[in-house]
């Protein structure tokens, strides 16, 4: 049951949602937002593709297996934890390699470091997990549909 309206809209909406998800992820650095919500938004983009074009198209759009994406995210989070551990001796301690603090205690530089990496990890874990579960569910549904048709 493919709908022309849905698949046309999806083609326009999907990039928008993905950009929004990156924006929300980026905003979460200092304001409400962040990896979890960003990852969920990105997952909705692929869910939309899955609804409009079918499971195979969604898998192609995602390119990597959901498990690998989740594993990559978990790896990012672990690396960010170990990074702080190796640098300062405290696991998960924030490391800001591009920030310097002057005599008055003001901070200068690029706020980019292990915490960003951790959030990126969350983004990918959420994206991978949600897509993985969604695809698995859809797989059962489509197999069931096959059985009923027989």
């Amino acid at each position: 049951m493919k709908s022309l309206i849905l698949s046309t809209c999806t083609r326009m909406l999907m990039p928008l949602i993905l950009i929004l998800s990156v924006f929300v992820f980026w905003r979460g650095h200092n304001e409400p937002g962040g990896g979890f919500i960003g990852g969920l938004l990105a997952a909705t983009a692929f869910a939309l593709v899955e609804k409009a074009e079918g499971l195979e198209a969604a898998k192609r759009a995602l390119r990597f297996r959901p498990q690998s994406i989740a594993a990559f995210g978990l790896g990012c989070a672990l690396v960010s934890g170990v990074w702080g551990g190796l640098q300062y001796g405290y696991f998960l301690k924030g490391v800001w390699p591009f920030i310097t603090i002057d005599a008055e205690g003001n901070k200068h530089g690029l706020p980019f470091g292990s915490i960003f990496l951790f959030d990126l990890g969350v983004y990918f874990v959420v994206l991978g997990t949600v897509c993985g579960i969604l695809f698995a569910l859809e797989d059962v549904v489509s197999r069931e549909a096959d059985v009923e048709e027989d």
């Binding site: 949600v130 579960i133 698995a136 569910l137 059962v140 069931e144």
Partner: peptide, 20 residues
């Protein structure tokens, strides 16, 4: 909430699978 969400999604998947 996040953990509960994850568990619920898994449980729903499982109950659908088991129904199937």
């Amino acid at each position: 909430i996040v953990i509960g969400f994850g568990l619920l999604v898994f449980a729903l998947t499982l109950s659908y699978r088991s129904y199937y």
